[in-house]
Design a protein around this nucleic acid. Structure first.
Lengths: 123, 123
DNA sequence: CAGCATCCCTTAAGATACTG
DNA sequence: CAGTATCTTAAGGGATGCTG
C-alpha cells in the first residue's frame, strides 16, 4: 500500500485493504467478543467460568457472542458428558490465528494505560 | 500469560491482559474509527477526502470520530490557511503505533475473505 | 470547505425469569 | 450447569438542514 495522498487517487488495492479492516472488525464486533477471544486465548473455559471471567456480562450476551464466534469458526463448543452436563469452549486453530492481534492489542493497551497515568501525574 | 485453565485461578497479570484488550477496543470503538485510522495510515487526508473514502459516513459521525481520535492523541488536526479553509488530518506518531495492529487486521481480513469464498465454492 | 444542530430511529445490550 | 425467552432501556448512529 503506497502513500497515495498526493494525487488523491486511491488504488483498488488500498480499497481492499480498508475493506479488510472492516471485515475483521465485523468478525470481532460487539461489546464482548475481543475480550472473550482474549480469555479463550489463555485456555479452554466452561460457560460459567467465562461468565465469571467476563465481568459484567449476562447469560444472554455470553451465549450470543459465543454463538457468533462459533459460526465464524473461531471457537469450538464441546458438550462434556459429565453430571450435570458441562460445556467447554476453546479457540479453534483458526481462532488462534487472531491471537497475535489480540496480544498486540493487549500490549498496546497496557502501554496506553501507563502513558495516560504518566500524563495525569505530569499535569 | 501462562495457561491457567486447569485450576480455574486467574492471575492478576492475566486480568490486566484482558483489561488492556478492552482498553484498546475502547480507543477504537465506534463504527468508523478503525477504518479511519487505516485510511490515515496511508497518508494525510482532508475532511472531504475522508468523507469520500469512508463510504457511507455522514458529516456528523466523521467529525465525532475524528474528535475522539484527536482527544486520544492518535490524530492531529491542522487548519490550512487556504481559500477557502481546508483541514488536514494526520496520524500522530502515537497514532502510528497502532498501524501494525491495523495492518495485521487488514491482512487477517484479507485471508478470511479468501477463506470464506473458498468455503462457499466447496459446498 | 468543514463542520455543528436537531430530530429520529434502529439496534445493541441489560434485567429478569424460566427450562432441559 | 448451561443456557433460552421476553421485555425494556440506552446509546449509537443516520438524515437533513444550516453556518462561519
Amino acid at each position: 500500500m503506497g502513500n497515495t495522498a498526493a494525487n488523491g487517487h486511491i488504488s483498488e488495492e488500498c480499497k481492499r485493504h480498508f475493506k479488510a479492516i472492516r471485515d475483521t472488525q465485523d468478525i470481532l464486533s460487539g461489546k464482548w467478543k475481543m475480550l472473550i477471544m482474549g480469555i479463550l486465548g489463555s485456555g479452554t473455559r466452561r460457560y460459567l467460568e467465562l461468565q465469571r471471567l467476563v465481568k459484567g456480562i449476562g447469560p444472554k450476551m455470553l451465549s450470543k457472542e459465543l454463538q457468533e464466534l462459533e459460526i465464524n469458526g473461531l471457537v469450538s463448543r464441546t458438550v462434556m458428558q459429565t453430571k450435570p452436563l458441562t460445556v467447554a469452549y476453546t479457540l479453534t486453530d483458526y481462532g488462534k490465528s487472531l491471537k497475535p492481534i489480540l496480544d498486540d492489542m493487549a500490549e498496546w493497551g497496557k502501554n496506553h494505560r501507563e502513558r495516560v497515568i504518566k500524563d495525569l501525574s505530569n499535569q
